[in-house]
Amino acid sequence: MDHKRVEMHIGGRGYGRFGQGQAYGGALELGLGVRLIRGLHLVGEIDMGAHGLPFGVQARAGLGLRHELRLTRWVRPSVSLGYSYLAEAGFEFECGCARPVWEGVSLRAGAEFAERHGVEAGLGLRFPMPFAPRLSAYLRGDGAYYFDARPGRVQLGGGAGVQVVF
């Protein structure tokens, strides 16, 4: 019989948006999951981070299903699919510092806020630790598509961290 288990994970995450509206950055990720039936988990995650080119910050929340295959004792691959919500703030700074001093220096700054909704799919590997069976290291990669008219609709990411099962 498969008993219900709760898992919590924390890790780092890198991400990039490509094409028009590109940005590359990193974030700290926290997640919580509940095993529904053998190998199938309901997982919620949040991450917050910053990116450059242009400079901005983002918070991402996701809710989805992850299925873990228990093929071996040492490596457990998984596949996931779910909903992704992205809130971001982009900042623009313009400095007229290249002009001669006698013409004056102009500084302009602006911020743009956006909310985005999309779908996310991913692949992962979990490595249970032999000395502590409830503690694992993980590697994950994912791709998200956001359903809006803003540039940079496709975001690819990857992360690594630790997971504890209660």
Score class of each variant (00 low, 15 high):
residue 26 G to D: 03
residue 146 Y to C: 01
residue 163 Q to N: 07
residue 136 S to I: 07
residue 111 A to E: 15
residue 102 W to E: 14
residue 135 L to M: 10
residue 31 G to L: 00
residue 163 Q to I: 03
residue 42 L to P: 05
residue 129 M to G: 09
residue 41 H to R: 14
residue 29 E to C: 00
residue 139 L to E: 07
residue 148 D to N: 01
residue 113 F to I: 04
residue 25 G to K: 05
residue 59 A to I: 06
residue 95 C to T: 15
residue 86 L to Q: 02
residue 99 R to L: 14
residue 99 R to P: 12
residue 159 G to C: 02
residue 148 D to Q: 00
residue 134 R to L: 15
residue 76 R to C: 08
residue 148 D to R: 00
residue 124 G to W: 03
residue 65 L to C: 05
residue 71 L to G: 10
residue 108 R to H: 15
residue 15 Y to E: 11
residue 3 H to P: 09
residue 105 V to M: 13
residue 134 R to H: 15
residue 34 V to C: 08
residue 59 A to C: 06
residue 18 F to V: 15
residue 127 F to R: 02
residue 136 S to A: 11
residue 143 G to M: 10
residue 163 Q to G: 06
residue 42 L to W: 05
residue 37 I to L: 13
residue 163 Q to L: 05
residue 121 A to G: 08
residue 37 I to Y: 06
residue 117 H to W: 10
residue 154 V to K: 10
residue 133 P to N: 10
residue 2 D to Q: 14
residue 121 A to P: 04
residue 24 Y to C: 11
residue 96 G to F: 12
residue 165 V to T: 13
residue 109 A to D: 15
residue 17 R to T: 11
residue 76 R to Y: 12
residue 88 E to W: 09
residue 150 R to H: 08
residue 92 E to A: 13
residue 51 H to R: 07
residue 74 W to A: 14
residue 85 Y to M: 03
residue 26 G to L: 06
residue 116 R to Q: 02
residue 69 L to K: 08
residue 89 A to S: 14
residue 140 R to F: 09
residue 70 R to D: 09
residue 152 G to T: 02
residue 29 E to F: 01
residue 108 R to G: 12
residue 153 R to V: 03
residue 19 G to H: 03
residue 24 Y to P: 13
residue 77 P to N: 05
residue 12 G to M: 04
residue 138 Y to H: 04
residue 161 G to I: 01
residue 82 G to N: 05
residue 13 R to K: 12
residue 122 G to C: 03
residue 162 V to C: 04
residue 108 R to A: 15
residue 34 V to Q: 10
residue 136 S to N: 10
residue 130 P to D: 08
residue 160 A to F: 10
residue 162 V to I: 09
residue 18 F to A: 14
residue 145 Y to W: 08
residue 63 L to T: 02
residue 22 Q to G: 14
residue 76 R to D: 05
residue 152 G to P: 02
residue 23 A to C: 13
residue 107 L to C: 11
residue 60 R to D: 03
residue 141 G to D: 06
residue 134 R to D: 15
residue 125 L to T: 05
residue 131 F to K: 13
residue 28 L to W: 03
residue 55 F to R: 10
residue 138 Y to R: 02
residue 32 L to S: 00
residue 48 M to V: 03
residue 153 R to C: 04
residue 118 G to F: 02
residue 141 G to S: 11
residue 159 G to L: 00
residue 41 H to L: 15
residue 86 L to M: 05
residue 3 H to E: 14
residue 157 G to N: 03
residue 119 V to Q: 06
residue 47 D to F: 00
residue 154 V to Y: 12
residue 73 R to G: 12
residue 63 L to R: 02
residue 153 R to F: 01
residue 108 R to E: 15
residue 74 W to R: 14
residue 80 S to M: 08
residue 54 P to G: 06
residue 41 H to G: 12
residue 79 V to W: 07
residue 133 P to Q: 08
residue 3 H to Q: 13
residue 82 G to V: 02
residue 14 G to V: 08
residue 155 Q to D: 08
residue 132 A to K: 14
residue 97 C to D: 14
residue 69 L to Q: 07
residue 75 V to P: 05
residue 117 H to I: 04
residue 127 F to L: 04
residue 77 P to V: 03
residue 98 A to G: 13
residue 139 L to T: 07
residue 73 R to M: 11
residue 31 G to A: 00
residue 112 E to A: 13
residue 5 R to V: 14
residue 38 R to C: 12
residue 15 Y to S: 13
residue 46 I to E: 00
residue 11 G to T: 00
residue 162 V to F: 03
residue 152 G to E: 01
residue 139 L to W: 09
residue 150 R to Y: 01
residue 161 G to L: 01
residue 28 L to K: 01
residue 12 G to N: 05
